[in-house]
Design a protein around this nucleic acid. Structure first.
Lengths: 213, 213, 213, 213
DNA sequence: GATGAATGAGGGTTCATTCAT
DNA sequence: CATGAATGAACCCTCATTCAT
């Protein structure tokens, strides 16, 4: 309902947000001025303030949206696969895809989301972003649980800590692969994709039942 | 005497660098102005330019120094341990320590270091930072090699890709643990330390020879 | 209505431009800061950037305007005279008038206008300034041509080189007369006006048909 | 005697002045900092202030020196020629040479030298520069006087006003030729040299006795 | 609701100059 | 005498933000 309102609140928000997104991607958030955004969006600078309280709010809305996309990617990965290993790979790829499409947000998601809801000043969008994060965790929870039930993932893991380690490690390699692609291709004689596959596999080892090649 | 001169210069550089470091940590690099730094350091703004060509140079010097410290930490970890597992843990802890002491640089180190030495304009400090990074890689190389020789680490790994995955994953969990410490303690019922131990162990599994608890 | 808007914009541009002009005249262009201009004009410094992209643009607009005035002066001189000699004198006086009213620009016009349209970065105003310069040349061309047809100016001159020499020499004496007026009145026992008349006459000799004076 | 002192005062003044001159020529006066000069000269920045009160003084010394060179050029031109026309041409060329070698000072000489010795604050060097200017005038006086005596220059000219017009016009064409060389070569199909020859000739007409080709 | 107009605050950087040593 | 060290003042410019209309 609040949602309904927000959506009808206007196309303009969307327009502005989209323009901002494009610019953020092209030039980074710090180097994108409201001036740039207003021009790209085709509105007056002052109009931005009609639809967004702040530059900060504008950013956080975008982060939220991207987070939702990440959730959707991962959800789709889970739904569309049967086999645990296959599912694992799809999840990994979903995150890679997300990082490649929103490299900028990926960094933010890793850092910004640790909001202290008591003390810090935070926006509603930030809270919602947090909640989407929770839902992503649930996705991973389901994945692990199912894998254990199917006896494809070790049963002696602690699920929650595993989820978190898993997420941290995955995002770690992916970020590294993205930031040092050139270095990797030159020194490792692997494409970024191959390198990631290797890394994902390595990580899977620590989860999977039994030995494996 | 020339030496004397250099040293006295160094004092001021150090002062400025330290002031900058503190502020960068508190407010981030973009939000720290040379004005702030000069006040914190007790020099005039113009004086900063006597000791550093640029804000950029100031930053890169700081990054370099921190990187060297990381190298020292890890080097010490390697030298002071016999057992592979013990060595592994010390390395992990070295990185954690580094992240805790220089949280700000940790993020930079993950991103900045992929310099394209052909095309991009870069400072000498950046090049040296890169080289220290290389030496860190060599440290990890030695660690893995020794572990394999001692039959404690699987012999069928590809060393270079492993180093990179390893580094990416490690830094990933560490970053996550640092950023979401509160969340972790609340939801996982583990201290940050315990959580990291769990994660490090999980990762060790994928490297270590054979079955294990 | 669009027009209305443009006009209201123009008011501010004018205000700023006029303030700048005054200051440029008083203190020279390099020694006039945007700070000074904004104060003189009664606007905030930031506002200047609403109406002018640059200090450079502000200057070039001013130069252009002055150049147009020079053109108008000279055009008027040509139109309002019949006799060649009379016309010549009016042209000379037009330039003198211009120099007296815009002493500052006069110097710039002599130097700035040789733009290399291929290589150099230049503003639209600079290009237009150049074009106005061309039109001034055409004015002189017409003057000489007519004078030749009327057999009052020698027919064996090369028109284009004459125009340029003519312009160079004229501006040369005028500048000198302006800069050293005091010296001239004291040592030559001529007023600036009389001196210039003498000089103009001297130059006319080299153009005019036959013996005279 | 004062002179003796100044000369012995030191080689350092010369060194500094020469370094400054080179830089002024390369980058213009406004864009040359004392820092640049001190580096080029191989002295400390503070040392410049031992030898020169000011940047201003440094500049005026240089202007004076250049003015002396101009005087020497012209003097040599006069001494080495018999024929009036030849002498005229040599004088013109001397000025051209000067402009080409010291393009930067040429502009200054045209403008700066009108010092009001009563009111304005001025440096001793500026006064001396003025005096050298006077001596240049005397040179021209001699030239005209001799020309008249030889019946090669019209006897009905007023010498002093002619000198001044002459100087103004000459410097005018020369400046224009220097500033718009490219334009001239393209539109006039004359080299800068040819153009100047044409202009000098045109001016000579107004001085020379009788008819001429 | 949309915006043209305006701005305060601050950004990094440069420079001529001073002064203790 | 020569200078290393330090700086105040100014530079041009950008930005997020406000407000009357």
């Amino acid at each position: 309902m609040a949602r309904r309102k927000k959506e009808s609140q206007s196309v303009h928000r969307k327009n502005i947000a989209m323009a901002a997104e494009q610019l953020f991607m092209k030039k980074g958030i710090e180097n994108t001025s409201l001036n740039d955004i207003s021009k790209e969006a085709g509105y007056s600078k002052a109009t931005l303030y009609v639809y967004f309280k702040d530059k900060e709010e504008l950013v956080s809305v975008l982060v939220l949206e991207s987070m939702q996309k990440l959730h959707d990617y991962m959800n789709h990965a889970l739904e569309s696969s049967s086999n645990t290993k296959e599912c694992y790979e799809k999840i990994c790829n979903a995150i890679v895809e997300y990082q490649e499409e929103y490299p900028f947000y990926f960094g933010m998601v890793l850092k910004t989301i640790n909001i202290d809801f008591e003390t810090t000043h935070f926006l509603p969008e930030e809270k919602e972003t947090f909640l989407v994060g929770e839902r992503i965790n649930e996705l991973l929870y389901t994945f692990l649980k199912t894998g254990i039930e199917n006896r494809e993932i070790r049963s002696n893991i602690e699920i929650l800590p595993t989820i978190f380690s898993f997420w941290g490690m995955l995002s770690g390699v992916i970020l590294l692969a993205a930031n040092k692609e050139e270095y990797i291709t030159q020194h490792l004689k692997k494409s970024k994709k191959e390198f990631l596959l290797y890394g994902f596999d390595m990580l899977y080892n620590s989860l999977a039942v039994e030995g494996r090649g």
